[in-house]
């Protein structure tokens, strides 16, 4: 599997695609910071013992009034901005990857079953999917969290999963319908493969590439959604770090000229989403069979 990957065009195209490399470098830097936040962050921003209101609204270190260790300044509670950003990125990555894993698994399973067995199952699930689809993921997650208040990060993940799985189910269904009648599937059937075996061993690997693109784009969208929900005050609880909440806090000081409360968390958020979008662009072009044929 790994050897096949190394020999494939995928890797050589990747190295030649500048924006994909830039995207993954940005993403890796932020991911590194997020994973090792407890080790590299100058302070633990959620430890009330070390917070001091005297440090409140300290500007970045290169400005007048800036002081160590507040490299990028401090917020109104005296929390170090850089540290809070690192912890906030952890939340972003955690929520983003949890959602695409859970929603992806549910969506892929439902889409696969619906397309494979068709009939009533297909009709019912796709009507449900249509209904979900005509409303926006954002609105649905917002309402769910507005109703079920105060459930912490797991609830945020659950709400986004409920609103989001449809995207995967629909893509998977379309993809499976495309490969279902292929010759190798007929061959597997002729060899006496069971339905389950055909689905998992033959259809799944061939139908999965479009899901990878959807998942990549969706990761960015989920990170933005979590930030938006936390910004509005219905997402991550206030005692947990979140980029969206940092920006929402900074909004209160926007007319006071405390720009660092907004700009730095904003840059972190954009980096994650931009990084994954650059990667997704490359993945889409790479896996698009229509473009591939044209190049050959």
């Amino acid at each position: 599997m790994i050897r096949r990957l190394l020999q494939s065009k995928l890797l050589s195209h990747y190295v030649r695609d500048l924006s994909a490399v830039v995207g993954s470098v940005i993403l890796l830097i932020v991911l590194f910071g997020a994973i090792f936040a407890p080790l590299i962050a100058p302070q633990d921003p959620y430890d009330p013992k070390i917070l001091s209101l005297q440090d409140s609204l300290t500007p970045p270190i290169w400005m007048k009034g800036g002081q160590a260790p507040f490299l990028l300044g401090a917020d109104d509670q005296g929390r170090d901005i850089l540290s809070t950003i690192l912890y906030g990125c952890r939340t972003s990555f955690f929520v983003g990857s949890s959602v695409i894993l859970i929603a992806g698994t549910i969506g892929v399973t439902v889409g696969l079953l619906a397309a494979f067995y068709s009939g009533i199952l297909d009709a019912v699930t796709m009507r449900i999917a249509d209904t979900f689809f005509s409303f926006s993921t954002t609105l649905m997650a917002m309402l769910l969290l507005g109703i079920f208040k105060g459930g912490g990060i797991p609830l945020v993940i659950l709400a986004i999963v409920i609103a989001d799985w449809v995207r995967y189910a629909r893509t998977m269904r379309g993809s499976v319908l495309g490969v279902k009648e292929d010759d190798y599937i007929q061959a597997a059937r002729a060899c006496g493969g069971s339905n389950l075996r055909i689905m998992i061993r033959h259809i799944l690997p061939n139908a999965i590439p479009p899901i990878l693109v959807v998942a990549a784009v969706d990761f960015g969208a989920v990170v933005m959604l979590e930030a938006t929900l936390s910004f509005l005050g219905v997402g991550v609880p206030i005692n947990k770090p979140s980029l969206g909440m940092m920006i929402s806090l900074g909004k209160n000081y926007i007319y006071a000229g405390k720009w660092w409360l907004i700009i730095f968390p904003g840059i972190a958020l954009i980096s994650i989403v931009l990084g994954i979008n650059l990667l997704a662009d490359w993945l889409r072009e790479e896996l698009n069979p229509r473009l591939g044929q044209r190049q050959q």
């Binding site: 960015g220 933005m224 959604l225 930030a227 938006t228 910004f231 509005l232 969206g244 920006i247 900074g250 909004k251 926007i254 720009w259 907004i262 700009i263 904003g266 958020l269 954009i270 989403v273 931009l274 979008n277 650059l278």
Partner: peptide, 18 residues
């Protein structure tokens, strides 16, 4: 346009105000 799809709406608004 890449920035356009990578910026959440609330951040666009806040930055425009700023």
């Amino acid at each position: 346009s890449l920035f356009g799809i990578s910026l959440p709406t609330f951040l666009v608004g806040i930055l425009l105000i700023l």
